[in-house]
Amino acid sequence: MTKKLKVSSTAYRILLLLLHLNEDRFNVSQLNEIFSKDAQVARYFSKDVILKYISTLRVAGYKITKPCLSNKYTYELEKSPVLSNFNERQLKVLAIMDSYIKSLHQIKLIEKYQSFLKKLQKIIPDEQVQLLNKELLNQNENPEADYFRHEHYAELIKKIESLKKDKCRVSIKYKLSEEAEEKQVIFELKNIKYDKNEVYISGYSPVIGQTQLIKLGQIIDAKQLPTQSQYNQILSPVIFKLKGNLAKVYRPYENEKVVYSGEKSYSITVTAYIEDQDILLNRLLKYGDSCEVLYPKNTRDSMVKIIGKTLNNYE
């Protein structure tokens, strides 16, 4: 049995308050909930007692916001009891990250990074906060930086983000190239994906029963349909075998599982829950004869077809 420490009950409650205000903002009744759920306290207090505790923290030098309509009548600690120093380069990296996040044009990501930065500023000394704010401005105004790669998709990304939020099926018209015929797909949107040169949307097509990626540059129009999305969590599995040196060093990608390791001749079997078959096959082609697609049959057939067509290029 552990020995119970003799403590000052009031001070413990005030420190408990400080601990929670350091993590978030709370109103009086939420603070009372915290007290009631704490094993050492386990009771409720009058508003006056809680105000006395807040007052003690203020006298101790902690800046705590006054509850008002704009902060939903909550108390919030402006600066943490324990500050942490970040070096100049780290502050700059935080600012660079802010600009890169903005360059992705997703409102939710931008808002969440802003709220992360706001929380982080609680533990950074004031002079460093000033430095960080200066860096944020510098980066935002840096014309040489690589922050404008996806600017031409800004409106489309915002539109897709809003369509995704509504969790409805969408109808997407797209063209693979300028000369190609226009195609239309019914899509249950999953994600917006980025790479060095392109932005894609990934989604499940209930008509063809597969997930796929479409380049934003190929989209002509995207419209919301009145039907709710139902299957957007479904990913199609593809199983492939890797052998030799590649099998030894292979690091699974996102949504991949190494399901079997061969013992005698070194080989592994990988199940990939893929969003786009073409992109997976392009990657597997790179592995040459160290890779064999096992399942499903149509993906195995597609691989054979690509290899055959490529060989025909040289006949």
Binding site: L19, D24, M97, I101, L104, K112, Y113, F116
Partner: peptide, 16 residues
């Protein structure tokens, strides 16, 4: 006395 970040806030770091 540590910071509490939401899943979405952490996700913004991971995404970038």
């Amino acid at each position: 006395f540590k910071l509490n970040f939401s899943q979405e806030e952490i996700n913004s770091l991971i995404e970038v």
